[in-house]
Amino acid sequence: MRMSRIVRTAADILYPAILIFGLYIVAHGHLTPGGGFQGGAVIATGGALVIVAYNYKEVTGWLKKNVLTGQEVTGLVGFIGVGLLALAFGQGFFFNYLVGSGSIFGIPVPYGINAGELNTAGTVPLMNFAVGIEVWGGLTVVILYMLSGLEKEGC
């Protein structure tokens, strides 16, 4: 059962906004409160919103469980891969080999009051991205399974 046109239109408009806000929290994990898990959870609430506004069958056509499980695997392997890469460089597990290196996320943190430099913190943002992708997939799958019973109530 779909909800009224007003709810569906509002969900359509809100979904990209939620997605972008979630991604913003993931990307700024090393600067502001939040991080991979929180951002991923925000994105997953967008999934919950469209399931409520449309119906389960329609939504499973857009949010495919295969893709979401794939996201989970990608995120987890990415996270552990970032840690293992440090071993390949001959340093300790989870050693932050990017910080201060001058390459991606590698510039030194500016001193004093500033707007927050995104391009810092080394491997921390990479791990936030990995966790964000993982939680996005994992929590959305959880929500899909939990709301899969909505149809059977006959409401």
């Binding site: 440090a86 340093q91 300790g92 597990f93 989870f94 050693f95 932050n96």
Partner: peptide, 9 residues
């Protein structure tokens, strides 16, 4: 001992 994230274990 093994220290995580350190330059040496």
């Amino acid at each position: 001992i093994y220290v995580f994230g350190a330059a040496a274990a």
